[in-house]
Structure formats: C-alpha cells, structure tokens
Amino acid sequence: MKREDDFEKRREHLKNLTNDQLYDRFWSLTNQVVKPMVDLAYTHTSPAIERSVVLRMGFSSLQAQPIISYGTKWNLLGKGIGNVILTYAKLKNIDYIKAGVELSKGIGWDVVSEKMKGSDN
C-alpha cells in the first residue's frame, strides 16, 4: 500500500512562518505536551522517588529504607523526605546527616510530623 503524499496540504498552516516563529511554535506545543507530566510530578511522589532523593543526599541504602518506611507510616512522603530530613535538622539544630540517622532509627518523627503538618512546607 502506497502512502499518499500529503505533505504540502499538512504544512499549509506553517509555510508562511519564519524560523523564529516555527521555533516558538515548536516550544509552545512541546510545553503543552509536557505540562501535564510536570504538574503530576509536582503533586505526586512515590517511595522509590523519595528513596532516590535520600540516597543522593548521602545516606546508605540501609539508612534510606527505614527513613522511607517511617515517612510512609507518618504520611509525610508528599512533603518530600529530603525536606522532612532538612526540617528535622533545623528543628534540632543538627547536621542533616545526623538528623537522617536519627530518623532512620525512628527518633523524631513525632516532632517533625507535627511541624510538617502544621505548616505549608
């Protein structure tokens, strides 16, 4: 089966645009396609994503697993576990690594939960 060549008909609405106009149109359409995914990323997370953040903060896998488990238990994944760790560190006036170690041992979740749920963090 041979495809009908309809290139000229399909490009009719674009043929009078300049390169700059085509460039702007391309990025405008790209933004329309990507916007729903970006919006979803701002409002949704998962344990795997949060674990990845914790690992990139410098915690070991053995520390990350309980931090994510406690974060899930305390319903704080949506706040961002990296944000939770940093908030706890500020509350206790300690380094974020020490804060994460405490959180991985189950220490401090009540304190940080109260702070995180009581604010727009």
Rank of each mutant, 00 (worst) to 15 (best):
V54Y: 12
E12S: 06
I67H: 10
P36I: 00
G106C: 03
I85C: 04
S119C: 03
W27C: 08
I85K: 01
D6W: 06
S119Y: 15
S60P: 09
A64M: 09
M1V: 12
D95M: 08
Y70I: 08
D20L: 15
F26Y: 11
P47E: 03
E8V: 13
A41Y: 01
H44S: 01
F26R: 06
K92G: 08
F26L: 05
H44N: 03
V101C: 08
T87Y: 08
K115I: 11
Q21N: 04
L55W: 13
W74R: 05
D39L: 00
V101I: 12
G58P: 10
S46T: 07
T30G: 08
N121S: 15
K79T: 10
G108A: 04
Q21P: 01
I97T: 07
S69A: 14
I67V: 10
L14E: 00
Q63M: 08
F26G: 09
Q21A: 03
D24C: 15
D20M: 13
K73A: 14
N19M: 12
L62H: 12
T72C: 14
T72W: 13
K35E: 00
S69H: 13
N31M: 13
V101L: 06
H13E: 13
K117E: 02
I81F: 12
N83C: 10
G100C: 11
Q32Y: 00
D39H: 00
S46C: 05
L14D: 01
K117Y: 01
Y42D: 08
G118K: 00
H13G: 14
Q32R: 01
T30K: 15
E12H: 06
G106M: 09
L55A: 13
L55D: 11
D39G: 03
E114H: 04
E114R: 04
N31W: 10
W74T: 03
N75G: 02
L103T: 00
H44K: 04
K117T: 06
V34C: 01
A64T: 06
I68D: 14
M37E: 00
G106L: 10
M37N: 00
D24M: 14
S46K: 05
L76H: 06
V112G: 04
N121E: 15
N31G: 05
V112H: 06
G108M: 01
N19A: 15
L14I: 07
K15Y: 10
N16Y: 06
G58S: 07
N19H: 11
I68R: 13
Y23S: 06
E4L: 04
V84S: 09
N75P: 06
R56H: 14
K117L: 00
T18L: 01
D6E: 08
S28P: 12
G58Q: 07
S119L: 06
N31D: 08
Q65V: 15
G108H: 03
E12P: 03
L29V: 13
I85A: 04
K79V: 11
R3P: 07
M57Q: 10
K90Q: 12
D110W: 10
A89E: 04
W109E: 05
S119N: 04
N93M: 13
G58C: 03
K79H: 08
N75V: 06
